[in-house]
Nucleic acid binder design. Structure first.
Lengths: 340, 340
DNA sequence: CAATGGTTTGCACGCGCGTGCAACATTGGG
DNA sequence: CCCAATGTTGCACGCGCGTGCAAACCATTG
């Protein structure tokens, strides 16, 4: 391969080497274009020799699709988010799209500037996994012909496509699970993050308990994570009456909670304490936790997204919000039967 | 904001609304261009009203920088990789770059096609976190003016920039740690993945033991992950003589190992068994594991990368490989003193 | 008022590519 | 041998934007 001086090879150079017009080169790399087999071979050979690669940026300039999809996400190192990105990137690639990941973590107004970036790069679609963009920003994206997909942002805006898991159903189910296990002193561990999805789980659980005539304390002492779960446990078990059943709105919270309950307060799970989490992250299946939880069907969700994006015409007429059923995963952190 | 019909706003429309030339609009959004304050205001107002956003794709077409950086990575949901992506995306954004994540997981020849995508999108740089691209592919990228940065791919190719942590040093250190703890029957748990970095840790540890006159068995029963660690422990503790010290080339392996040793074989850590991991993923600090391990200075690494990319002129004269020192993290999975 | 220097503006071109259109080559049938 | 039909090729234009260049404008000074 010829060594060139710090610059990408353009179609014109390939054309010159192959002894054809630039159009011929362009057509060779365009599906369904009319090129004879001989020139095609010549072009491919020349392209290979020069190390030519079609400039997708320039191609997207006239063609209305950039094949770029933006993922807006924060706390990427979180197991749940990481898994989401893993699946999303794979599925997107399988339909010829490519993922731009915009980390909305640190900076103030991170989501807003991220949304602007998506427009700057003419992304075909933007998938929001974290944060809540303002309606006006969403409107901008939509009016520019982008698809906007909100995942687990339960705000149910009418413009974009909403994808949610049925938190209310799952949280209600969780309550009855604990109740059937014979738990009498039940608590909820949530976070101060105020993510709509987590909030929904929290209030649904409390509501289910209330309807059952039980008043359930809610513990929220920090952001969504292991450390907050620890802190919650310390407060819960530092009281006079200690819980025998806990619903955590996130697996990470549950694990922090469980570790402190066991190691600092000598509780045994599930004999003295039943715990339920949410998300079914990898660690939930680890021996030390063996956590009963609810799995979000991320595969199905990703499949659905991909199907949405693959469809050329956007079916805006259809209901803009699609909901998925969380799958209960029975493990060992909930007592099988009530104690005698 | 005016509602438009599924298409991005272009500078010309802004110009018309603002009553200026398109150049004025362009200059308004270009740093260091000469525009009077009044036209600037007019343009900004019009842009705001129309929802105009500069097309970075078109901009990058003539300007030699696309500000796109590709991250090649597999197994994104792994804590280590996730953290790497988290930090990388943040730091890249802080210098005005944007990250394209290419998941090289599934598909055969994934790395090769990923490298090609990199060129297709005219990425300024490509950062390889997983897999080992062929030298010819790397050469293609380099000759196109892209920067290629290989992380922990210890192949030490001469073209691209190599970033490594000193695995040999750390593994040797790990051996002496176990030795000082009084461990006499030491084993290594590795994986069948054959990643250069992991292999380096493995052989360095074995070599350190050999020089100390100790023959150390190496267990590799599957890919790098928790389950493989479990399997390794089952085999190690199913033997007649069982280890009292284990070095795992990855935290995940260590955790699987520890869980099985404790729960299936009743070993107590660190009294009967000392374990050392590598990476210092979040979970290593969790109470259930409290794992002694080596932290990769991901922050420093990312800073270094960012500095490389920010420098306009690439200092190819300098040594193309930069190495970082892993930081020992002392926790509770290694016995503090040898038993009497 | 004229001359001068500095600032701002518009024009026009190029970035790399896809594609409509017309010219061209090829082939088969009459 | 001629004509039509089919297939292929090249030209030229446009995609949205940045920028060099020269014209136009403005303020300041002599």
């Amino acid at each position: 391969m010829e060594v060139r001086e710090r610059s990408f090879v353009k179609a014109e150079e390939v054309a010159k080497l192959a002894g054809v017009s630039r159009s011929a080169v362009s057509r060779t790399f365009t599906d369904g274009a009319s090129v004879s087999e001989v020139t095609r071979k010549k072009v491919l050979a020349a392209a290979e020799a020069l190390g030519y690669h079609v400039n997708h940026l320039a191609r997207g300039l006239s063609h209305e699709r950039s094949n770029i999809v933006c993922l807006l996400v924060s706390d990427i190192s979180t197991p749940y988010q990481a898994r989401m990105i893993d699946i999303a990137t794979q599925k997107l690639q399988s339909i010829g799209k490519i993922a731009m990941v915009i980390n909305t973590t640190g900076e103030p107004e991170g989501v807003a500037s991220a949304m602007r970036q998506t427009v700057n790069y003419r992304a075909d679609a933007v998938i929001v996994l974290s944060g809540t963009p303002s309606p006006s920003l969403i409107a901008t994206c939509l009016s520019n012909g982008q698809r906007v997909i909100l995942i687990n942002r339960d705000d149910q805006l009418s413009g974009p496509t909403n994808i949610v898991v049925e938190n209310t159903f799952a949280a209600t189910e969780a309550y009855h699970l604990l109740k059937r296990a014979g738990c009498a002193r039940i608590a909820v561990v949530s976070s101060t993050a105020g993510t709509p999805s987590l909030k929904a789980r929290e209030v649904a659980f409390v509501e289910a308990a209330r309807q059952d005539g039980l008043d359930v304390p809610v513990m929220q002492t920090g952001p969504t994570g292991y450390a907050t779960g620890m802190e919650a446990a310390r407060r819960l078990f530092g009281r006079a009456v200690t819980p025998d059943g806990i619903f955590c709105v996130t697996d990470l919270l549950a694990m922090g909670c469980m570790d402190v309950a066991r190691n600092e307060f000598g509780m045994s799970v599930p004999d003295e304490l039943s715990i339920i989490g949410f998300d079914d992250i990898d660690q939930a299946a680890w021996m030390s936790y063996n956590l009963t939880t609810f799995r979000q069907p991320l595969d199905s969700i990703a499949d659905h997204i991909v199907r949405l994006l693959a469809a050329e015409t956007l079916p805006q007429a259809k209901s803009p919000t699609k909901s998925f059923q969380p799958i209960p995963v029975w493990r060992g952190s909930v007592r099988p039967r009530p104690p005698r």
